[in-house]
């Protein structure tokens, strides 16, 4: 007996389909379903429990009228710009230094990268201690005789978000350096030889030849940094718990607090939907450039 008829398409490759069930469930139920659910319930006045009692955009009006949310957004923007600019600049400079065929490259790389292995909680706690006004950097400098020295970022509401950025940069720059270093190593050695034959100074070669060639690396890095910025939460919790007052609040913390402490689910959903929106603003143009552009070629 030979199978002469085309078998049922559903049962062809059955094992592969079975193996993909977790992926399908996660993609449909958790990612797509969960996101749609949250967006839908952000239009309700759910308090302690989710209820389908639609109130239109009320939650969003309230959100944008809440000082704590506005501060959160402002903090996120400052934190975002600071960590983006500094981690790119420092990360690239460190990578460029390591790319000079130096000795002990592995040792230096290991040192620059180890903070990335630590959690944000650990990072936050350590820096909270280092920046402790009585015993930390400020205390030490003052005890050396400079009594008017003032460096107390975590307890000064106007600069607290910068204080948090210090810890974030310490933790994350190593990663950026690694990505940049990989990008630099990916560049053809002959480019350097050609630039040297042409007598172009090194900094100009970096600025006008190497960096433009590393455009894809920069874009990927940018997306990685940006999607990490939006999620910032643990670091703030560990370092300042949002304080002093509400001076270092961030959106992710706003969401968590409204969902699980203030028992105001609707606010939490609206705030998380705003976070989703901000990520989309970053991701969609990138995805379009990265994947949409190729089809036209």
């Amino acid at each position: 007996m030979s199978k002469s008829a085309r078998p049922n398409q559903l049962f062809r490759n059955l094992n592969a389909k079975v193996a993909s069930i977790p992926m399908v469930l996660t993609a449909l139920v958790v990612f797509a379903g969960g996101t749609a659910w949250t967006v839908l319930y952000s239009f309700t006045n759910s308090k302690l429990l989710p209820r389908l009692n639609f109130v239109g955009l009320d939650q969003y009006y309230r959100l944008w009228a809440t000082p704590r949310w506005l501060i959160s957004i402002e903090n996120l923007l400052i934190y975002g710009v600071v960590s983006l600019v500094f981690s790119l600049v420092i990360g690239f400079l460190l990578a460029a230094l390591l790319d000079q065929k130096i000795r002990f490259e592995d040792t230096f790389r290991t040192i620059f990268l180890y903070p990335f292995a630590l959690s944000f909680i650990v990072t936050g706690v350590v820096w909270q201690w280092l920046l402790n006004p009585d015993f930390g950097v400020q205390g030490v400098v003052r005890s050396l005789g400079w009594t008017s020295f003032d460096f107390n970022p975590l307890y000064n509401s106007s600069i607290v978000i910068y204080g948090i950025s210090i810890a974030a940069l310490w933790q994350g720059t190593g990663l950026i350096m690694c990505l940049m270093l990989a990008g630099l190593r990916g560049i053809d050695e002959d480019i350097w030889k050609a630039a040297r034959v042409d007598g172009i100074p090194m900094w100009k070669t970096y600025l006008f030849i190497i960096i433009p060639m590393m455009r894809p690396v920069f874009i990927t890095t940018l997306v990685i940094i940006a999607s990490g910025i939006v999620k910032v939460y643990d670091l703030v919790v560990a370092q300042t718990s949002g304080g002093p007052g509400i001076a270092s609040e961030v959106p992710a913390k706003y969401v968590y607090d409204y969902m699980f402490f203030a028992q105001n689910l609707g606010q939490g959903f609206a705030a998380s939907t705003m976070m989703l929106l901000s990520v989309m603003i970053v991701i969609v143009p990138w995805a379009y450039l990265e994947f949409g552009g190729r089809k036209r070629v």
Partner: peptide, 26 residues
Amino acid sequence: FKGADTFFVILIVGAFIPYQVMIYPI
């Protein structure tokens, strides 16, 4: 198999969605 890539794309896009959006449904 047919459709596999669609789910995969949803999965990858999902990686970029802030966790806060999916916390409560979970």
